[in-house]
Design a protein around this nucleic acid. Structure first.
Lengths: 271, 271
DNA sequence: AAACCAAGTTTCACATAATGGAACTCTCAG
DNA sequence: CTGAGAGTTCCATTATGTGAAACTTGGTTT
């Protein structure tokens, strides 16, 4: 239901791409065929096209399709040219340093939370293996912080995409409970995760909003009930809020440093 | 000439995607139109479809298109399910620790070198802003190490995609010189970068090959002429080679830990 | 305020390109 | 050798993408 991809051929091809992604491992043609709404020939040609384009790679030994490295290249570009993530980087460094806790930066993607950066007080960030992860929106601080400030239609769509799986006793398991919490968040200006996703894990999350109130992303500080409490985290709000505001401001008037924009040929500095 | 995208509608749409990427910043419709081979309406519909699909994002304030965050999500999946990068991770850690120099892991993508991971002896890895970068193949250690072990047709294609720009006096500036070096590399089993890309920067690079001799990627240790010499780097070969072999072996019989593969809904562990 | 202009969006007849059933080819197992 | 399963190609049908041109919108000039 509500499969609703629909955007012509391109949409279908990207469907196939997602399908390959959803397996989380290289897949055989027949496995895809089984799970695909498309007939053999159609699926085949889409796989061909995507492979030819480098969006998929085909491992001839294993006879299996996997996601292609062109995606990594594109994502690098996406991350770099997104106004939010690169601008936020130094601020995340400073913030995690200051509060000594794990800091996340997230954006909303099809009703899900997508983590675009992270600072783990102790260990340094773990690259692609960490950033790029997605998680549920209805039971995470960042997710709720962002949803709370969506306009009506965007919110409705986002809510409809939530699965409301109960992870812990505190998980909000229906749209009504979620809306209540969102209302409170809107009034308060920031969100909490009260062990809603994982027992013992709590966080405060602050939305990152443009001057006009559009949601750019969210910022959170995560800790555990063993180390602190919700009150303890709330005490950090005066530290977190200005960081979020700063990031928003910088992201908004981020005028691109005029790099020579050669087509598809960005040189690296250090080999 | 040799624009050769060609794969039907999907290919064209991905062209557009690349075009947006090539700007390195959010772009207006008209800017794209100017640089696009496609007529207004066609370009417009492709942008619509891609945006709708989350491959592009449209910033309503700026009225500009940028790469979408869906790419980041897909790239995360690509990185995770690629057999090379995740398998290599601990080995890179160990290697950089051991040799105390910068270590790169790269793959070949359309004749260019794509860095998929990196360890910088001193500073921790710089995430998306580093991994995902592309560089020239003909004048880097990893690039030459990989090209040297391609089969004839793949090599011909890769060579044809080199730009042979002279970065330093040592840069190989034509196909003949490159072929000579590749022959030597094939004989020797590993490649050098003799300040060919950047003055003062040298490296040794080892290809990562499957049992059948297929190129999976390459591994390099980079340093500067101030700190060491080519001989000094060559002395590390006995350390590097087994690492490359180990990674190759593990990547080859990487049988995927059977995670529950829910479609498009991978849960995160720590909020 | 009216006229203008540029940027973006929609329309529509047409032609290209995607579709999918079926036939074909390969490879491997019995 | 025979059969089964997986993967690839064919081809008539039809859905889709195409692009010139008309239209709408928002901002600027006279």
């Amino acid at each position: 239901m509500a499969q609703a991809t629909g955007d012509g051929t391109v949409g279908k091809a990207l469907d196939v791409l997602d399908q390959v992604a959803s397996f989380g491992r290289p897949v055989r043609f027949s496995e895809l065929l089984e799970a695909s709404p498309y007939p053999k020939a159609t699926l085949y040609r889409h796989l061909q096209a995507l492979t030819h384009q480098g969006m998929l790679s085909f491992d001839p030994d294993r006879q299996a399709y996997a996601l292609g490295i062109r995606l990594v290249r594109l994502a690098h570009a996406a991350w770099t040219q997104s106004s939010l993530a690169p601008v936020a980087r130094p601020h995340l460094d400073a913030l995690s340093q200051k509060v000594g806790e794990t800091v996340h930066l997230a954006q909303l993607d099809h009703g899900q939370v997508l983590y675009v950066d992270k600072r783990n007080a102790a260990r340094p960030i773990e690259m692609f293996s960490e950033a790029g992860k997605v998680g549920p929106a209805y039971c995470t601080g960042v997710g709720k912080a962002m949803m709370a400030f969506l306009d009506e239609t965007a919110l409705a769509e986002a809510v409809s995409q939530q699965s409301f799986h109960r992870f812990t006793p505190a998980t909000l398991t229906d749209a009504v409970a979620l809306h209540d919490d969102l209302r409170a968040i809107r009034a308060r200006g920031y969100a909490f995760d009260r062990e809603e996703h994982e027992p013992g894990i709590i966080c405060v999350a602050m939305p990152i909003l443009t001057g006009k109130g559009r949601v750019l992303g969210a910022l959170s500080v995560t800790s555990s009930t063993a180390r602190t409490s919700l009150d303890g985290l709330e005490a950090l709000v005066p530290v977190i809020r200005p960081v979020a505001e700063r990031i928003a401001a910088e992201a908004e008037d981020w005028r691109f440093p005029d790099e020579g924009s050669e087509t598809r040929q960005r040189m690296t500095a250090g080999m």
